[in-house]
Simulated assay, not measured.
Amino acid sequence: MTADLRLGLNLGYWQRDPFDATALVQAAERLGYDSVWTAEAYGSDAFTPLAWYGARTSRIRLGTSVVQLSARTPAATAMTAMTLDHLTGGRLLLGIGASGPQVVEGWYGVPFPRPLARTREYVEIMRKVWRRDEPVTHDGEHYPLPYPGGAGLGKPLKLITRPLRPDIPVYLGAEGPRNVALAAEIADGWLPLFTLPERIGEMYGPPLAGAAPGFDIAAMVMTLLTDDVRGALDTVKAMLTLYIGGMGAKGRNFHSDIVARMGYGEAAERIQALYLAGRRQEAFAAVPDELADGISLVGPAGRIRERLAAWRASPVTSLLVMGPRDEDSLRTIRDLVLG
């Protein structure tokens, strides 16, 4: 149970139209939000907007939710993280994730198999880079250092710059139980995308059992402050339609899998089948209202206040709200969560 939730603002990644959220981020900082987070898929990257916002703020922590492993080598991510952490006075929270085979193989042109093993090696190398104990070597299958081929001239190197923090916090974006268990074992926090607060303990209790004290479960939550509950639920349902139906292939969709583990297996199968058949409006209609309502916080302030009780009773330690786009909404949500 978490009586005192931390509050963050999750901006996600740019959609079709770029959005400079500087004013929103500055408002969140003034209002006492703990963190702001950016993401990437196959459009805007996560680090550049975060550097932009970091240069225009002084206190709010800066998180990536998430940067994709296949977009950069472990050393490149470690260098970027170290640089941004220095420039922002030690405010970076580095969230990483494996993404899925469609993006990894279709966009980055690298193989997807064995994401857990790749994630483990990735984090090991980054931490070696930041510690600067010695020149970095790694004999893993996925990221061997030095590279055992090519010109044959590779040599172990040590980061030139001394990191501001040799222990930059690492979060994992994870959905499957084994990936969540890996986060509990090797990371400082977990970034769940879809969360039913009433069931998260039941679903992930064993995988989270090995987490160290202070492990942060930072749940991303669509939060829409409005009197139009029906319209807000439809917004959440539209997002779920895309993720369950279109973010992955038939038989390999991690978002559909997690919805099934929540108890909506039949609905998930139907949504995906309809979506892949091009019947997207029917797929939207097949998303259960109770699922959309369960993973989100939508409606007028009183309704959101009632729903927050379930989040406070869950293992979640941080709420990363997605959706607010004005200072008044940020203030009301702040008052509801931090009270």
Rank of each mutant, 00 (worst) to 15 (best):
V287Y: 07
H255S: 14
L274E: 09
V287C: 14
G265P: 10
R270K: 15
D257H: 06
A273Y: 00
I258V: 14
L274S: 01
E269W: 02
F284E: 02
A273W: 01
E282F: 04
M262C: 09
A260N: 11
G263P: 00
I258C: 09
S256I: 10
I295P: 07
V259F: 09
L276Y: 14
E269M: 11
Y275N: 13
G278V: 04
S256A: 15
F284Y: 12
A268F: 09
R261V: 00
Q272H: 15
L291G: 01
E266P: 05
A277K: 11
H255D: 05
A273P: 08
A283D: 06
A249S: 07
A292Q: 04
D257P: 03
E282M: 01
G248C: 02
N253W: 07
D289I: 02
I271H: 04
S256H: 15
M262W: 05
R270H: 12
E282A: 06
A267P: 12
Y275H: 13
G245Q: 10
V259L: 00
G251E: 04
R270M: 15
D257L: 12
D257M: 14
V287H: 08
H255W: 15
E282C: 04
D257N: 12
V287F: 12
G263Y: 02
A260W: 10
D293Y: 15
L291Q: 07
D289E: 13
E266G: 08
K250G: 01
R261Q: 08
G294E: 02
V287A: 15
Y264F: 15
Y264N: 14
L274G: 03
A267T: 10
V259S: 13
A268R: 14
G245I: 07
D257S: 12
A292F: 14
P288R: 06
R270P: 03
G294M: 10
H255G: 06
G248M: 11
G246K: 00
I244E: 05
L274A: 07
D257C: 00
M262Y: 02
Q272P: 08
I295A: 01
I258D: 01
S256D: 14
